[in-house]
Nucleic acid binder design. Structure first.
Lengths: 227, 227
DNA sequence: TATCGGATTAAACAAATGATTAATATGTTT
DNA sequence: AAACATATTAATCATTTGTTTAATCCGATA
């Protein structure tokens, strides 16, 4: 719903009957836009495609979201926030150990990306172009630094259980091994002649393997490297 | 140069004086197109931008390359072939060990991607859309399977030096840890508030670390896991 | 029932964009 | 010098595309 009307709408919100229908149309547009933007990117997506996919009149897109770009910014921001929030929640669970966090991040993201495999390329390629100021208010700058994960990591280093002192490598290796297969899927499937089914099975297998590999990479205690 | 004229040109190739100038213009277009396509993608790149970047008249683009799409296909194919050829050459060197191959692939790709950081996202996001048949003749299907690397890997598994029996995980982890940081650079830099200089220094550090990590992940012999 | 406001629609607009044309320039061949 | 082929240019074309407009629909309210 367009900005000007939003105020009026919110004022009446309680007795509004058509609200479901309104929200439905508004949501249909956003859902269609999300699907297309994520699959084809901003520049390759036409407003007419969005309207058709949503089953609505073209003008309604501008009626509710002002412009293609505003709609896109909204979706890019929401998608990125969702993506980062997952990480943030898992990294800040006070009741899980460092090892458990690794396992949960791995399983959580592999499940998420299996359902939404186009999200990483979408985020990473569109953030490059747009979003100059779009992400400043997100303030992710201290998200990792202030996390429970980071405390536990430093503790583990201090106790000599973990060898690498730069936690960035730890996080980067973990995310690399989880996310990259989805990003490179198309190329990798051609490189080794793999079907979709085999790919998904491989990613399920990696749920178990990645935590083991991470442990082997960063643990100082040889006896633990076997499990 | 357009198809129709190519024949005539090749017939005269020996005494052609304007050939340098011709090739120069043709090359200027391709270079400009490559730079823009790789940075902004197919859909976001205008033929007028390419013409301006190349410093040539708009019509010359169609004169030499027929259409935007033909020009793009050429560049996507060339870029992908270059990228894969690097891997192919390194994986098929008969005079290097498995460990040396890991080191060389790591150093080679980190250097390449430091110079051309946009290439991976470009390839991986554009291959998804175009390229239905563009890559069939590339026949990468057996590239990995028939490589010297694969022979050495199987040998290492047979000798018990390497633990994981599925070589796909080995290759995928290697490529993930090398390539993903470049793909996720923008997001990662925001996540940890990192500057460009720090990023490059980190990637140089990874040249040394990744082969060590790979060795730790996949080696069965505990005494080797320390180095 | 009449009226009002938001939702929806078909039509149109203006700018952008890929491509083409026709003319001209430039250098080569005869 | 004349004829020719290729390279280059400015102008134009036809479509596409994001957006707007004006009219209409529809349910709620008074």
């Amino acid at each position: 719903m367009c900005d000007v009307m939003k105020e009026k709408k919110e004022m009446k919100e309680k007795q509004m009957k058509p609200m479901e229908l309104d929200a439905s149309t508004e949501e249909k547009i956003k859902a269609a836009a999300r699907a297309l933007f994520i699959r084809k990117g901003y520049a390759a997506t036409r407003t007419r495609d969005i309207a058709e996919e949503a089953g609505i009149n073209l003008a309604l897109l501008n009626y509710y979201y002002r412009s293609k770009e505003k709609l896109f910014d909204l979706i890019l921001l929401e998608t990125t926030v969702d993506f980062m929030k997952q990480l943030s929640v898992l990294l800040n669970d006070a009741h899980s150990t460092l090892e458990e966090k690794v396992e949960r991040v791995t399983a959580g993201y592999i499940d998420f990306l299996t359902a939404e495999p186009h999200v990483p390329i979408f985020m990473l390629s569109e953030i490059r172009n747009h979003s100059g100021r779009l992400f400043e208010r997100l303030a992710m700058g201290r998200m990792l630094k202030d996390s429970v994960f980071m405390k536990q990591y430093e503790e583990a280093v201090a106790q000599g259980r973990v060898t690498e002192t730069n936690p960035l490598h730890f996080v980067m290796n973990l995310l690399s091994m989880i996310i990259f297969p989805f990003v490179g899927k198309e190329l990798l499937q051609r490189l080794v002649a793999m079907q979709d089914g085999a790919f998904e099975r491989m990613m399920q297998e990696r749920k178990r393997l990645i935590p083991v590999w991470i442990k082997m990479m960063f643990s100082r205690n040889e006896s633990e490297q076997i499990l």
